[in-house]
Design a binder for these strands. Structure first.
Lengths: 172, 172
DNA sequence: CACTTAAAAGACTTTCAGGTCAACAAAATA
DNA sequence: TATTTTGTTGACCTGAAAGTCTTTTAAGTG
């Protein structure tokens, strides 16, 4: 268990967006627009979540994806496992290639404990936590803060719907 | 501060080998042979250590590299900093690209503390610790355990000098 | 000085995560 | 049934890290 990849980050963002949405189902295109993740790539990431049984999908007209379970029953660890297929074995903290249980580096025990701590954290943290956290940090603000500040057009009011992103993922 | 790269691992291995050697100076070629690291690549890694002032180098006949200081005065953090030039900023534990101090993810504080713990560990750990650790784990064994077990020839005694590697890095 | 030796330096290759593009397959609708 | 819509799938592209190969430069030796 290492630091989660950017791709897993996408999965978390997308699922949080889906969970926070008022409608049960959303199209990948919508989620991509909301989160700013590239649609074509997000589609691939979502596909892994489908295979893992985290989300259900429906093709064709009025299709889309939906959570297979309640957000508080989907852990971050589970999302990571779904995305990171063929995950390489845990790496040595010191970067030593031949470090193992039998041939341990001086930081081996420390790193093992740390990794275990992280793993516990990720199995405890659920999608519901993410959504709640996002919701709380948005309360008390007039405008939801954009996830991509660099894309925000300077002339505030006239910003196009395409360039502006809502953090709350409830635009629908 | 993330998990150290494989390249930094090479640097640590090489410096430990150098520190453990009975002779003050060693050639890159020798260290490569001892550690099993590709010579051409190791040369590049060593170069960064030279620039950072961790090792001194001498070209030409009877040339080689040597530690610029005592092993207990060289921290792992310092080695990492020497190798990882242009290090990308610390990544979010959850892989979320837009996570920052102002826009923090639910795991932000936890991860910050964890990273700080790792940083402390790496500034505390010195090259001398690595060497001592390696020496201790080799004591009480008849043969030093090879770093690359997969390269060890099965017919034990007849193993060629080229294929056999000493963990102690004192073969000279 | 010519010659050898070993580090320094640059161009190049390989691998992989991240990402794009286009064709395909299923579901609804007219 | 033809068409539109949306997820699915495979081929390809890109940039950074890891690693190789070759040439250059500096230091000794005879």
């Amino acid at each position: 268990m290492n630091v989660l990849s950017q791709t897993t980050g996408y999965a978390i963002e997308a699922l949080a967006c889906l969970a926070a949405s008022s409608s049960k189902s959303m199209m990948v295109r919508e989620i991509a627009a909301e989160t700013g993740i590239a649609q074509a790539y997000l589609a691939k990431v979502v596909q892994r979540l489908v295979v893992a049984g985290v989300v259900d999908s429906k093709r064709g007209y009025r299709g889309g994806i939906s959570l297979s379970r309640s957000p508080d029953d989907i852990t971050i660890k589970e999302i990571d496992d779904a995305v990171e297929i063929n995950r390489p074995p845990d790496r040595c903290l010191l970067g030593m290639t031949h470090c193992s249980e039998e041939r341990a580096c001086p930081a081996h025990d420390y790193w093992k404990k740390t990794r275990e701590s992280v793993r516990r954290r990720l199995t405890t943290l659920t999608l519901a936590d993410i959504v709640e956290f996002e919701a709380r940090r948005n309360s008390g603000k007039k405008e939801p803060s954009p996830l991509l500040p660099m894309l925000r057009t300077v002339q505030s009011g006239a910003a196009s719907a395409k360039a502006t992103r809502s953090l709350k993922c409830r635009s629908k």
